[in-house]
Nucleic acid binder design. Structure first.
Length: 843
DNA sequence: AGCATGTCCATTTTT
DNA sequence: TGGACATGCT
């Protein structure tokens, strides 16, 4: 929390401001006076920040008392409501900034809110100390009460990497095979348990048994113990420790109840169970004592001043523990809650909203909103659905459309390609490189996750927190000092035996004869260095100290001596790393920032097309949006369907909804007939979501060119879509039911009905049927796209080496190798390819 | 210690 | 197919 001060005294009388300038403009310290002031404001006319809000937004801002759920659809001004509401509370003197708890999921959202509140309130009000992510606020709470969680207040926050390494050690210490029981998957299990708020004693018997021959619970316990001895926390603990503290120390909880007059939560649909418990503890005051607990008379109404903002239709993080149910249940959880729907959309055209609305209406279990707009749309551009032969052509065509738009004066920055899975990006990147079209990929690996930055961090962590064994292990032999596994083991064992940190153990060990001379002197040097750096921590500016550490440790030299291509880049990153420290007051502050934020600003000024996943597009908007890959198996993704069933499908549909609602003016959706998955070509069928788009708002785009040579001659490429009644049938047959059909039936039926529905493929449906029939042994239980995975372990192909076969994409060829149902075929024109036997037919 | 070879895997991502 | 990772060889 280095980036904003909490200069408001913590447990003081809430009504006695410490510093006069902390008083919000126009507000008086006491509740009664505040309300009087508010009344005066009313008489004078409404505050300017309220003008320009629509009635619903305004209601959401002004309903300050009691529980409120704001259902804010995409592009309905959610952030505006949230920030204005805070400004309103402060401006009306209902609370000081320090008495408002405002929680977001991402640092980005927190930053944005902070800025916008600043704009609303001007400079006269200091930043809000309790605005932040669940985790950053969790840290803040935990630092105050660390001892109640058996930690010191300078505990370290471990990231996923640290956690995995730690768990790996534990698994090995148990004498288990870390191959058979990968640390990563156990880390995921722990994470999932923590998302649900479960401590080792609370996990289900089944879960406990599921890992490491029934040692799951034991390992989880061992892990927690290890964290405690390391004086460390993982991300989950940042929530769980406060929860436990609140539960076991009602007095402490009560103090926070008094402190936080107003609680606001952003993206409520993304909360997991632990976050929900945390919120509930803070928000739910004991009913019977509401009055007496409120001596200051602030709370005019009984109940909680909790305002949750979210959109059940945009819940796309179920797979990482988010419980849509939290938002669906809100009114039950908080009786008497006001529910305010924001449905007026300020972002997209009516066509786009129409498409989005009809698509999402196929979900059950929603609270139900329909976005609308009054804004005229001069272009009257419908959503365009395009077909392409394969992913290569898809990329080519998208590239062409982008260039066309660019020629018409559209900025690349205003365009985005949103994919379901990141492997799809590559084809676009390749194409854009060829075209010389600027693009940027949003999402990829982060600055602080890079190897060299993590190494540098590890050095700093050992200096700042000598007990940080994970960091110590990471850099003990980086750069190489001849301190290999053997030395590491000795230090480790020595430390474990005595229960001391490894740095200390190393310090002791060099005094003994236990190490061989060479490692001993190397280790002595390391230890002496660290001790020296530690002694400098308070007397040397932290950036200078960091430079010193990297130089004297030989770390910088290591990269300077490295002749590989990436070394210069790494050195550059290290410089950038030091530079980024300048923004922080101290080493401690910096380390905390990195642990929680893992984010470094990049300077992106160029005009470039944005490429990212649908997930990372949430919250963003673009003039023109491309949504490629709308095919069964990819989108909706097969695994979501397999693992999540109906709710998995609904989450995929919400993801589609998120994608569609990112577009302001132009939306292009693409699907292809052939996609290479795991290196093998597969026929694909259009996504069921295409059937779920309303005819009135959608236009089937004609292919306007010869893409790739197959198109013009091969019969398919010149896609023709039947305009007559393209969507009619599919509504009566929900895609999901269709999906339950047996693969062969599904293949025939889908192609059959689809070619009569929105696609006409000359000669395709017929051929495909016969392909399917050629492989009767494969029984896909669920979805069409599944064949690949299902077919792997199935009987050997009917094809033989030397057979002549025909493939839709590659034409005629001769089978060269048969491997189960995978064939290597020497095609006459296309050369050697690996294909599934189901996609070729005998000639 | 560093390269060659084999093996396994293959959504989505924040903190 | 290709990449990440581990093992094993020189």
């Amino acid at each position: 929390m280095s980036d904003f001060p909490d200069d408001m005294p913590f447990f003081g009388e809430p009504d006695a401001p410490r510093k006069p300038q902390e008083r919000p403009a126009g507000a008086e310290p006491s509740g009664i006076a505040a309300r009087a002031m508010a009344a005066r404001n009313q008489q004078r006319g409404e505050p300017t920040y309220l003008t320009g809000l629509n009635p619903e937004q305004r209601l959401a801002v002004e309903t300050t008392e009691g529980p409120v759920l704001v259902l804010a659809g995409a592009g309905t001004g959610k952030t505006r409501v949230l920030t204005t509401r805070i400004a309103h509370i402060i401006n009306q003197g209902l609370a000081y900034p320090s008495q408002i708890l405002a929680v977001t999921f991402t640092n980005k959202a927190a930053r944005e809110m902070r800025e916008r509140i600043g704009v609303l309130l001007g400079d006269s009000v200091e930043g809000m100390p309790w605005l932040g992510t669940f985790h950053s606020i969790g840290v803040k709470l935990l630092r105050r009460h660390a001892e109640l969680a058996h930690l010191r207040s300078d505990f370290t926050i471990l990231d996923t990497d640290d956690v995995i390494r730690l768990i790996k050690q534990l698994i090995q210490a148990e004498g288990l095979d870390d191959k058979r029981w990968p640390a990563r998957s156990f880390a995921n299990m722990i994470d999932a348990w923590k998302n649900k708020g479960l401590s080792p004693s609370e996990i289900s018997e089944g879960d406990a048994r599921a890992f490491a021959n029934g040692k799951g619970r034991e390992l989880y316990e061992a892990y927690q113990n290890r964290l405690r001895t390391l004086n460390a926390c993982d991300f989950g603990d940042l929530l769980l420790h406060p929860i436990r503290i609140f539960r076991t120390h009602p007095d402490i909880l009560r103090e926070y109840h008094q402190k936080f007059r107003y609680i606001l939560v952003d993206e409520y649909q993304d909360t997991n169970t632990a976050q929900y418990m945390w919120l509930r503890l803070l928000a739910q005051r004991p009913q019977n004592k509401t009055r007496t607990d409120n001596p200051d008379g602030f709370s005019a109404q009984q109940g909680v001043n909790l305002c949750c903002v979210g959109d059940d239709d945009q819940s796309i993080y179920g797979w990482r523990g988010a419980e849509v149910d939290n938002i669906l249940r809100f009114e039950k959880d908080f009786p008497g809650a006001a529910v305010i729907k924001l449905e007026r959309n300020y972002r997209s055209t009516a066509h786009i909203l129409g498409a989005a609305g009809y698509l999402i209406s196929h979900n059950e279990g929603r609270l139900g909103k329909t976005l609308f707009t009054d804004a005229p749309d001069p272009d009257d551009a419908r959503v365009q659905v395009h077909a392409a032969w394969d992913s290569e052509e898809e990329a080519r065509a998208v590239g062409e459309t982008i260039e066309q738009a660019q020629r018409h004066g559209h900025k690349l920055n205003n365009m985005a390609i949103l994919v379901r899975a990141s492997f799809q990006m590559r084809e676009f990147e390749d194409r854009f490189v060829t075209l010389g079209l600027n693009y940027r990929v949003i999402g990829g690996p982060r600055f602080y996750e890079r190897l060299e930055v993590r190494d540098a961090m590890a050095y700093l962590r050992v200096v700042a927190q000598g007990a940080d064994d994970l960091a110590f292990e990471r850099i003990l032999n980086t750069p190489k000092r001849g301190l290999g596994d053997a030395s590491m083991r000795q230090i480790h064992d020595y430390a474990r035996e005595r229960g001391i940190p490894m740095l200390e153990a190393a310090h002791d060990l060099v005094q003994t004869e236990e190490l061989k001379p060479k490692p001993r002197s190397a280790l002595r040097e390391v230890v002496e260095n660290f001790y020296r750096w530690q002694s400098l921590i308070d007397i040397t500016p932290h950036t200078e100290l960091a430079e010193m550490i990297l130089d004297e440790s030989g770390y910088t030299a290591m990269w300077q001596n490295d002749k590989t291509a990436e070394a210069p880049g790494r050195l550059e990153n290290l410089k950038e790393f030091i530079r980024s420290m300048e923004d922080y007051e101290s080493l401690r502050g910096f380390l905390e920032h990195v642990a929680l934020v893992m984010d470094a600003d990049k300077n992106e000024n160029m005009d470039a097309v944005n490429i990212m996943t649908l997930h990372s597009a949430k919250g963003l908007e673009f003039e023109t949006v491309f949504l490629p890959g709308w095919e069964e198996g990819l989108f909706p993704h097969q695994r979501s369907l397999d693992e999540g069933g109906r709710s998995g499908l609904e989450e995929e549909r919400r993801l589609a909804y998120v994608g569609v609602t990112r577009a302001k003016k132009n939306l292009h959706i693409w699907f292809v007939s052939n996609r290479r998955i795991h290196g093998m070509w597969q026929s694909t069928i259009p996504s069921r979501f295409l059937d779920e788009l309303p005819e009135a708002h959608v236009e089937i785009a004609e292919m306007d060119g010869n893409y790739g040579g197959y198109g013009s001659s091969g019969g398919y490429g010149q896609s023709r879509f039947e305009k007559a009644d393209p969507f009619q049938n599919s509504y009566s047959t929900p895609g999901w039911q269709r999906a339950q059909q047996n693969r062969n039936d599904a293949t025939r039926n889908n192609w059959g009905s689809r070619s009569g529905a929105n696609v006409e493929r000359i000669g395709y449906g017929e051929t495909e049927s016969s392909f399917g029939a050629g492989r009767g042994s494969v029984k896909g239980r669920t979805i069409d796209g599944e064949i690949v995975s299902k077919s792997v372990n199935v009987s050997t192909s009917d094809f033989k080496v030397g057979s002549r076969v025909f493939h839709l994409k590659f034409g005629n060829g001769t089978v060269a190798v048969v491997d189960g149902n995978k064939l290597t075929v020497e095609f006459d024109k296309a050369g050697q390819k690996r294909v599934l036997d189901s996609f070729v037919k005998p000639v």
